[in-house]
């Protein structure tokens, strides 16, 4: 496997930093985007994640990892948090954290599942559920007029579960090399020709994209989804070394 260097000094990335909630935007009934103000944030590469730490008054701490949802923008750090049923940290972040409240973050973390603006060649993004978050950071980092076409194949349970729904529709409509294919596993909009069902190989080959286009593939989602999507990509002939995966199970409540 090829390797990529990590930006920023190591000491900068391992320090815990105070982060203040500047804004929050509901994305779906179960997910919220938090905009944190992190003074002197060193910046990150699209696809990276951060650790978020919560501390109670008596010193009890809980730490979880969350993907960054948007490219570096000064001291503003955007995380999209999906509520995990009974999740200790995600339910607090989704339901209780208010503007002006303080948490701690450290990072950026992860130097493999990244896309750097300027990295040549087409990009195939394959998202299952909230696995779309780090991929959205890549999509948002793609400069207008980029020579690298992007295709996002996004699997969600239903239209109501889609994160960034309007923004994705807008970006796809701009005719600027971004395509979005939606896959619904439980309920689809009326008239949807694909129908309901888990990701199929043909979902990954639509719009004339083929192995010959040699895209770099980024797959993110729950374990079962990533196993299946990555296996489809390999079976379609994509070389394993061009497929990067990021998986999460129900591991971070």
């Amino acid at each position: 496997m090829a390797r990529t260097a990590i930006p920023g000094g190591l000491s900068a990335r391992r320090a815990w930093r105070s982060a203040t909630l500047a804004d929050r935007r509901p994305e779906t009934a179960q997910a919220v985007t938090l905009v944190l103000d992190v003074p002197d944030w060193p910046g990150h590469v699209p696809g990276q994640h951060v650790d978020v730490r919560l501390t109670s008054e008596d010193g009890y701490r809980a730490t979880r990892s969350y993907s960054v949802a948007a490219p570096t923008d000064g001291d503003a750090l955007e995380l999209t948090v999906q509520r995990v049923p009974d999740g200790e940290v995600s339910t607090f972040l989704c339901d209780d954290l208010r503007r002006g409240d303080t948490v701690e973050v450290r990072g950026p973390l992860g130097g493999w599942f990244v896309w750097r603006p300027g990295q040549p060649g087409p990009v195939l993004l394959v998202a299952g559920g909230s696995g779309v978050v780090p991929l959205m950071s890549m999509l948002r980092a793609r400069p207008a007029g980029s020579a690298s076409p992007f295709r996002l194949v996004y699997s969600a349970r239903s239209p109501e579960d889609l994160l960034y729904r309007e923004e994705l529709a807008r970006r796809a409509a701009e005719n600027d090399g971004v395509e979005v294919g939606l896959v619904f596993t439980r309920s689809a909009p009326e008239g949807d020709r694909r129908g309901v069902g888990r990701l199929r190989p043909e979902d990954l080959t639509g719009h004339g994209w083929s192995v010959d286009d040699a895209p770099t593939c980024y797959v993110c989602g729950p374990t079962g989804f990533v196993e299946s999507a990555a296996a489809h990509l390999v079976a379609l002939g994509h070389p394993p070394e061009r497929i990067r995966t990021e998986r999460f199970g129900p591991s971070g409540p």
């Binding site: 501390t55 109670s56 303080t102």
Partner: peptide, 10 residues
Amino acid sequence: MTVTRGFHGR
């Protein structure tokens, strides 16, 4: 120690 207001944890 940076305390997050209202966080008690499980």
